[in-house]
């Protein structure tokens, strides 16, 4: 089973816009993952459901149980990536504009297209940034990483 969290936390300041940390080709990746394994999407209650099995708003303990039961997690730079690190399990983390050297954990598999897409001021509010779908690896790259894990 794979946990999937393709969206970052919904800040009210986004006003309905996608978060710059959201994965762009989310449905394509969700389909590939579901062809590969059982997938449980986790995240906030306002996230778009892209997998058949969506379990939003899990408690910390509830999420921990799923993490232990999972093969791995595939997520953007978000809560789930830190949880995998906390529980000593390895996740595949899809970085775009935030720097994995700062916000990532070396214990995870951090995927980044190019450091040129990183935002210059890493500690400013990320949701003020423009959305750039090019900043993320494509779904086939994620699947290759999954095979290598």
């Amino acid at each position: 089973m794979i946990l999937f969290a393709p969206f970052a936390a919904r800040s009210p300041s986004l006003g309905g816009r996608p978060s710059p940390k959201d994965y762009p080709k989310v449905k394509e990746l969700a389909e590939l993952l579901e062809n590969e394994d059982e997938v449980i999407q986790v995240g906030g209650g306002n996230d778009e459901q892209v997998c058949q099995n969506f379990q939003p708003n899990l408690s910390f303990d509830g999420l921990g149980k799923l993490i232990h039961a999972s093969r791995t997690g595939v997520c953007v730079d978000s809560y789930l990536s830190h949880c995998y690190w906390y529980f000593g399990r390895r996740a595949i983390v899809l970085f775009g504009i935030s720097d994995p050297l700062i916000f990532g954990h070396p214990e995870n598999l951090n995927l980044l297209v190019d450091r040129k897409f990183l935002r210059p001021r890493q500690f400013d509010l990320y949701y003020l940034d423009q959305y750039n779908p090019q900043a993320f690896v494509d779904p086939p790259t994620v699947m290759k990483a999954l095979q290598c894990l």
């Binding site: 936390a9 910390f60 978000s78 809560y79 990536s81 830190h82 949880c83 690190w85 906390y86």
Partner: peptide
């Protein structure tokens, strides 16, 4: 701060 930051502090 965000939930992820809470997890780091928890560790």
């Amino acid at each position: 701060a965000g939930r992820g930051d809470h997890v780091i502090v928890k560790k």
